[in-house]
Design a binder for these strands. Structure first.
Lengths: 342, 342
DNA sequence: TTGTAAGCGTTATCAT
DNA sequence: ATGATAACGCTTACAA
């Protein structure tokens, strides 16, 4: 069965292909009756325009691309929803693209920009460190949302924007909060910091806080999760290992809420009460934090602000109203039921 | 800055465009030295082939498409991972496409099939009821995974495949389990069943079970969640309303684990102990079910089997080894700590 | 092994 | 308001 094309529709309607194109694309310079006739035939035949051909020819596609590393992470859900809303409001189309863990998001963006004629690109998730030159190969504005970056790097500073919390600062905030509650033996569940990442910044904040308060970093209280398994499971097993190691701790700081959920379960299984025996804190402020038992003390990222400013910024950049910016929003320490004064 | 094209590369290398194309696509009929020279220039210039142009011309793209409604639903994560693995193993490329809630997934598929020259399509999430004629417009094999359907419909039966659990049967299994534990006043948290969906099948199973055991359906125990808000919040609020309605119940069956998590929290807030005062059951067997406190009794969907068979089937269909099938796998009732005998 | 040229299915330009 | 026709950037016969 031969694919039906615009030519075929034109033939059946007894009009030229450009007229059909006009009908499809809602151009004004077309007789409404002709248009109706064409639309009828299109519906009848089930004709669907080929997007590859359209993208190839089209120059003015108002399209913004969102590349998400870890798209199944519910953390991104509210951000994506906001992006969708604002994009539509501006009359732009959205291309949401999932980036595999092993893929380099900038490479994917490079491809997608050409394929879809993107006008702007938003990165969610993934690395916080990118080659500025490569970034500049993207001929359209680029924003990293919820991914802070090393903006002391003057080369990179003007190659892209960032809208995020300061992960190191927020992390320190949480650890200082725990210290303020009287904790000195504070364990941490973090990821391997072989790559520069948000998580390594959170680990940094932990170290800073301890340091500032004259608490010596105890290697035995630093546990790295194995990235390869799902996060809750990860948090569970690593916490179990921590407990079984016999190391003494009165608080456990997890670099994400999801890890913390696993930790809560592991502690419960070991008969360790939260917060009576051990305080537990998370990071992110995901939905689960306020629904788990006990509710989790966490750093809530201001996702509404972040998404809003991201959208404002991307359109300003597209319209060349201003240059690249690095916006930092404060996180909010939400006290749950998982921490207590000792 | 003019986009760099294959012509430009050819010119710079002093070769024809087809030679460059050969280099890019790893064709064998090319001098390794020429190829190397070309690849060097490509790297140097940062040239990236335009995918729209490639897809337009290409006829043999070995590509399978996965359309996911609700891609941020972690339920799909393990399935998608399996699909990725198997697709790669077969030397196929994967096009993962997010379908908006308001979009019709079949329409999106129709577009994508042409754009990307798909050879097969897998649907995850979304409606279980589709127009068979429209489905047949897709010229490639179609499978609905984890979405059972009304296969008594003879027209549709041969237009697509399904690989799933029988949601009505599994749901009945769970409710009968609760009945077996001595519960008679069993409330349910479900979605509005205005649309034919998986959830409506689960509700059906609930009714069947009650009916079979001579328990009259009590409208006051049937609570519909408001779809528009996030699921846990949804489960929380609806359960709260149920509690405040004053209706008496000893068990609460939630049509998804995520709803159940919200329910657990609402019960805890009301000072109702689980499972001592009320038993709670979920559905799906998501990761959270085994990490929440108390662990959730749920129906675990055999996602490994489902994904495996889906992949086997799609390739068989592509290679025309066999026709459409409707595979049903049994779910597993996992006893957690959230239910008890009364 | 390599180059030339003809499409792929659209949209944009330019006549009419 | 409409129709030819030339791109868009690539792959793939077909020639050389």
């Amino acid at each position: 069965m031969a694919e039906i094309t615009i030519r075929e529709i034109a033939k059946r309607c007894g009009v030229g292909v450009s007229t059909v194109s006009r009908a499809i694309n809602n151009h004004s310079d077309i007789n409404p009756e002709t248009k109706q006739r064409i639309m009828d035939v299109i519906k009848e035949t089930g004709y669907i325009p080929n997007n590859s051909a359209r993208n190839l020819k089209r120059t003015d596609a108002k399209c913004i691309g969102v590349l998400v590393k870890g798209i199944t992470n519910p953390f991104f859900t509210p951000i994506i929803e906001k992006i969708e809303q604002e994009t539509e409001k501006k009359g732009y189309a959205l291309v949401l693209r999932h980036v595999e863990a092993y893929e380099n998001e900038v490479n994917v963006a490079l491809e997608l920009e050409k394929e879809k004629r993107l006008r702007g690109i938003i990165f969610l998730g993934g690395s916080s460190k990118h080659d500025a030159d490569k970034l500049r190969q993207l001929n359209v504005p680029v924003i990293f949302a919820t991914i802070g970056s090393d903006i002391s790097d003057n080369l990179g500073r003007n190659a892209y924007s960032t809208v995020s919390v300061d992960d190191a600062v927020e992390s320190r905030k949480m650890v200082e909060y725990l210290i303020g509650l009287g904790h000195r033996k504070i364990a941490i569940l973090t990821e391997g910091n072989d790559q520069p990442s948000i998580v390594s910044l959170r680990y940094e904040g932990y170290c800073d806080a301890l340091n500032k308060h004259g608490i010596k970093l105890d290697e035995k209280l630093v546990k790295y999760v194995d990235r390869r398994i799902y996060a809750m499971q990860n948090g569970y097993e690593t916490t179990k290992a921590l407990i079984e190691s016999g190391a003494k701790f009165t608080a456990l700081f997890c670099v994400s809420d999801v890890l913390a959920v696993g930790a809560l379960r592991a502690l419960a299984d070991a008969g360790i009460r939260v917060p009576e025996d051990v305080s537990v804190a998370g990071f992110d402020g995901q939905e689960i934090a306020q629904f788990c038992v006990p509710r989790l003390t966490t750093i809530r990222q201001p996702l509404a602000d972040i998404s809003e400013e991201t959208m404002r910024l991307i359109f300003d950049l597209i319209e060349e109203k201003r240059g690249h910016k690095h916006l930092i929003f404060p996180g909010e320490l939400v006290e749950g039921e998982s921490t207590r004064k000792i």
